[in-house]
Design a protein around this nucleic acid. Sequence first.
DNA 1: TATGTAGATAGATGTCCGTCGATTTGGAAC
DNA 2: GTTCCAAATCGACGGACATCTATCTACATA
Lengths: 117, 117
Amino acid sequence: MSVDLELSPKQKRAAGERCCEPVVYPDVQRDHALRMAEVAKALGDPIRLQLVDVLHKHAGKVCVCELVPLFDISQPTLSHHLKKLRDAGIVDSERQGLWAYYYVIPDALEELSAWLS
Amino acid sequence: MSVDLELSPKQKRAAGERCCEPVVYPDVQRDHALRMAEVAKALGDPIRLQLVDVLHKHAGKVCVCELVPLFDISQPTLSHHLKKLRDAGIVDSERQGLWAYYYVIPDALEELSAWLS
DNA sequence: TATGTAGATAGATGTCCGTCGATTTGGAAC
DNA sequence: GTTCCAAATCGACGGACATCTATCTACATA
């Protein structure tokens, strides 16, 4: 006949007791997380986040030459940030003559936005 | 008396015509953007994003020892990622004996979430 | 054809990041 | 006290990142 003893923490562990409920992570989430992390990483720079903010607030397309004076960085550096945003699928551009116009791709941020809610 | 001539692009530019509507960026947004970029940067790694996902789905607190086997990284690396999330103000931890329990700070992601919507 | 101009690319540099193995810290058990 | 254990920290290494200057590419003007 068994006695209702208080078990020591070590005995509890040995008996299979856990620190908390077991945690599993569904594989389905992994590539989902990968895509969202890519977007988050692109937004993880103050200048890029402000760029998206400006482009979004000007619902239309904004010329690069209007963006350059907004920040204290060189034109090539801004071009580099715009490329990062383009590579992440957040913005796209359109050329008209000498000028290039950038805009936020509709719903590009929706996946991340939905996850955060 | 002035004639209604078609101006060349260069003449237009010389006359002050712009490629698009002038764009200004309010200073108020800058520190706002800085804080959000910090959060986005912390989420900009697949493992950290999955960590937040797991912690959030387990509304309670999750023990580190349950998190380690979920990812193919060493325990010190996981600890490093948890520190990054803590530094960004996204998660916090609580120690109980040998074990450490992590949880998502309520509303830590709200600012970014609101901006994305 | 030659010149000017907007934007992208190339190359260099210093810093930050993700990862690891080894060690340290602080409780708990014997 | 000594041993065991979970988690954090340390030190190192390779790769990625933000930034710059200099150059290149298209296109438009003359």
